[in-house]
């Protein structure tokens, strides 16, 4: 069963098309990662899904409700947490929880139970009377998540939930998300951290308002890459980079730690050429092998491919 479905979703702001023709489906209990550079249309899409913004074109449903006509019903069935901490810092932990459970009209008998659940989940039992503004970032994050889950929504939207949170807290946070998904909650999360993308069941890459790729992280790495990636280990890697990048057949070369990663259409053909060129230039090649691309490699390659395509189109039109 699909909890989120989008068909040709579009949003324009004046002449600017922020989101164009996005179609995707997210199944119940799935963690769907929505990736893309800043300004690609991630937040605009999520705002349309939450009923904060009306689509200019296309259609969609969330938890079975239409995102155009049933926005109030959607609000009752989703939890939303944004990158900015958006609870009241001048209220205590408990007062924030009470406020949100009042807003969601959680029945009296259930209120205490849900409050206990949130305090426990967020490890905030001892801080229940602390002003929220005095909590460290990661703790606030957990409280935000708790408040978004008070009414046990079947769908959870997270807009860059871990920006500004330290790595340990981030890991804890993702453990929580996995627990929730295990319990049948559908999670729709935007991020631009690649290591976070690895935690997701399925990914969608959005760039300049368009959905560029869709698939599991493994599918992305194995099938979406049109190029092959070679890892080159040599001395004076920084100097070698210019030599490598200038070779015909090398699409792109970047430093990756002390190694160079280079992208090419045909790895087998380029290996001997590369070895010769390095020897002639006086570099010592320690290792040269084909590797599985990282998600970052995949996305950079997809985005650059898109840019080339559009560049070519522009030249053709011009």
């Amino acid at each position: 069963m699909n909890v989120v479905t989008l068909k040709d979703l579009e949003r324009r702001f004046g002449d600017f098309v922020a989101v164009k023709g996005v179609s995707l489906e997210v199944a119940k209990g799935e963690i769907f990662g929505f990736l893309g550079p800043n300004g690609a249309g991630k937040s605009t899409t999520i705002r349309m899904l939450c009923g904060l913004l009306e689509p200019s074109g296309g259609s969609g449903t969330v938890a079975g409700f239409d995102i155009r006509t049933q926005r109030e019903a959607i609000k009752q069935n989703i939890g939303y947490m944004s990158q900015k901490f958006s609870l009241y810092e001048d209220l205590t932990v408990e007062e924030n929880i009470d406020f949100y459970s009042g807003i969601y009209r959680i029945p009296g008998a259930k209120k205490a139970e849900r409050k206990a659940w949130v305090l426990e989940m967020a490890h905030l039992q001892a801080q229940r009377r602390t002003r929220t503004g005095q909590l460290p970032g990661g703790w606030k994050q957990r409280l935000s998540l708790g408040c978004a889950l008070l009414h046990e929504p079947p769908v959870l939207f997270l807009d860059e939930p871990t920006s500004g949170v330290d790595p340990m807290s981030r890991r804890d946070f993702w453990d929580l998300i996995h627990q929730l998904a295990g319990g049948g909650v559908t999670v729709f999360v935007t991020t631009h951290y690649m290591e976070e993308a690895e935690y997701c069941d399925r990914l969608g890459l959005i760039y300049r308002g368009e959905l560029v790729a869709l698939g599991t992280p493994t599918e992305m790495k194995e099938h979406r890459m049109t190029e092959q990636v070679l890892s080159l280990s040599c001395d004076r890697a920084h100097d070698a980079l210019t030599v490598v990048a200038a070779l015909p057949g090398v699409r792109d070369a970047v430093l990756f730690g002390r190694d160079i990663h280079l992208m090419t259409a045909d790895a087998e053909r380029i290996v001997p050429i590369l070895r010769d060129a390095m020897e002639q230039a006086g570099f010592e090649v320690r290792a040269l092998e084909r590797i599985t691309p990282s998600l970052e490699d995949v996305f950079v390659s997809l985005i650059e491919g898109k840019d080339r395509e559009e560049g070519a189109q522009r030249e053709f039109k011009g």
Partner: peptide, 13 residues
């Protein structure tokens, strides 16, 4: 300004 408005707007308030 502090972003709580957006949070309120996604609730059934």
């Amino acid at each position: 300004e502090i972003g709580t408005m957006e949070q309120i707007m996604v609730t059934p308030m």
